[in-house]
Design a protein around this nucleic acid. Sequence first.
DNA 1: GATGAATGAGGTTTCATTCAT
DNA 2: AATGAATGAAACCTCATTCAT
Lengths: 196, 196, 196, 196
Amino acid sequence: MKEDKRELIREAAIQVFSEKGFHQARAEEIAQAAGVAVGTIYNYFKSKEEILLDIFATEFEERKRFYEQLRESGRSVVEQLREILREHFRLLEEQRELMQVLLRERFEPSKELKAELARLYRGIVGYVEDMVRRGVEEGWLRECEPRVIAHAIFGAVEAVIACGLIYPEEEARRIFRAAPKELAEFIWRGIGREGG
Amino acid sequence: MKEDKRELIREAAIQVFSEKGFHQARAEEIAQAAGVAVGTIYNYFKSKEEILLDIFATEFEERKRFYEQLRESGRSVVEQLREILREHFRLLEEQRELMQVLLRERFEPSKELKAELARLYRGIVGYVEDMVRRGVEEGWLRECEPRVIAHAIFGAVEAVIACGLIYPEEEARRIFRAAPKELAEFIWRGIGREGG
Amino acid sequence: MKEDKRELIREAAIQVFSEKGFHQARAEEIAQAAGVAVGTIYNYFKSKEEILLDIFATEFEERKRFYEQLRESGRSVVEQLREILREHFRLLEEQRELMQVLLRERFEPSKELKAELARLYRGIVGYVEDMVRRGVEEGWLRECEPRVIAHAIFGAVEAVIACGLIYPEEEARRIFRAAPKELAEFIWRGIGREGG
Amino acid sequence: MKEDKRELIREAAIQVFSEKGFHQARAEEIAQAAGVAVGTIYNYFKSKEEILLDIFATEFEERKRFYEQLRESGRSVVEQLREILREHFRLLEEQRELMQVLLRERFEPSKELKAELARLYRGIVGYVEDMVRRGVEEGWLRECEPRVIAHAIFGAVEAVIACGLIYPEEEARRIFRAAPKELAEFIWRGIGREGG
DNA sequence: GATGAATGAGGTTTCATTCAT
DNA sequence: AATGAATGAAACCTCATTCAT
């Protein structure tokens, strides 16, 4: 019950942040979107910043679990990559607004958030990096700098996702339909063993 | 002379925006960084937003010229891609702060900026898209969705650049040294004709 | 039973008011200190202000009784004064926190409280004033303006008590030990008949 | 010019603080009383608290100078005491509102102010304490605890001054007229050498 | 053109009080 | 009677922008 209200506020915040961006989002708007009074927000979160941080933490926690399950699934690296892309774009369709927030506020430079966001972000990219490193060690992937490549992969995916912020609804949808296959191909060729 | 002062303010704004982010940057700070009074800023720019817009416009204008020259240089698509990456990372070293601003505020959703930024951004990616499309038509590149791939390329590069916001100075530099070659390889394999 | 709870809350309020002052004291803190829920406070008091008022009223009522008993005790004015000082400093040791509240919030100017506090305060000083007036009439004390002198006596005592708010614990205790005798001497010489 | 505005705001704050008390005084009211906009206050003071602190510091600085001049005036201790009382009551008539603020907010318990106010307050009482101590050493005053007596003197004076907060205007004025002589007598007898 | 003091709308957060359980 | 989550008015302070000098 108590957590329901907190969740309610978090969802409302995601919606408002995605529309206006973190700094433009007023506490009053979040409250309205959640159907509660302004004061109620502060019964569940210490500050507006804490809501954003909570959104990141929750989401990254979930991705972390996803990556860990994947890692232990015993599937091939190619399949793991495909799975990651599929999951990313599934989230994108289902939680478009959340994704927008994660994308936009990623580099939020306010002192208190910066360190924490960077930590969470690095954590996630770290999974891809590990995967690539193991792929190279096990001979599935060509020689490369796993950290650079991990960021490149992440960036490629995110940039395509960001089309949702840039192109009109219709065009965005067209892009998203083609994206998973295109990206998988692009990434696989980019790092796969020649002739693999 | 008149343009010197405007330029001075723009440079100062880049510096402050890169440190604090657009919304955290106070007009007073920009004025101080520029060595002028606050009022002076408003003799050259209508608002804080207009400075950001100007930064984007100027930078994108420059890139546009660069891409156009490149397109008419008659070089092969591979070489053009290499050249683009080289240029990107050159800018990154020389104008780290500017790049940070461009990255961070890209999705700035404020009403007035959004449309304009989207237009500028699409313009730039459009060049890569065109290049890829021609590459495919001319048989240099494999069959693909040029728009998706263009964004993927762009995103891959930007994500690696963004490492500068995430990793400590030392680590970032290490990444940047390896990045151009790694990325060129990644992208080229990703879109090149098999056996190309 | 009912009064026990009200008393419990009053005691808690004294403690919190003495630590933070009336305006800095939050209802939640008082509730916590009393070991009840916030709502319970409002079952016994109409408002936070009413608690403060009740603290003053209760305390002043008690002092009033003390002064009346003293007046009817038939003791000499000198002895009555000594008794008052003794009582004051006894209270100070026993109810340091209460005394701090009485001192600090005495001039609390909020509309509803002001008149009432002034009335209570004047009532108390009035006893000393009466005592001094009778002392003069009966020839025990020198000619003087009883009202001015009554306030002076009261002030002298309170200022010494206030040392507890100003000096560190240790120093305050040292002062308090010497205070009753010093003050009695000071006041007695100040208003006694010469050569008395 | 610049200091004029700061002074203007300080005066306005004294007026509002004296009417409503520090915590009840809203920044907006102070601004209105000063005939400036709210923001202007914050161009001259970091916070509302800083205004109060500034009022204390300025006033105490002035008193410090007064005490130091007095100390070096070579006058007898009796005369010095009379002079202090005269000055106190002169200020009271001229700057009734300021005195109310100094009295009321003296024990303000907010963390940041408390230490500073206590320091300033102790500084002032310290002068009286020194004077009494020298009086005792030089044989003008009877044996006593100078610190206790200094606070008693201060308190006696302040309590009489506080009548201005408690009694109606007319009655207060009547008290103030009699007060300096009465208090001087009271204090002098209280600490003077017998038969002095 | 340059200045920077003044402006005041607007934002976040607090907290006394209520009321359904 | 007791609870404590919800309320929302109110307060402090910020800062983009203006304009008289």
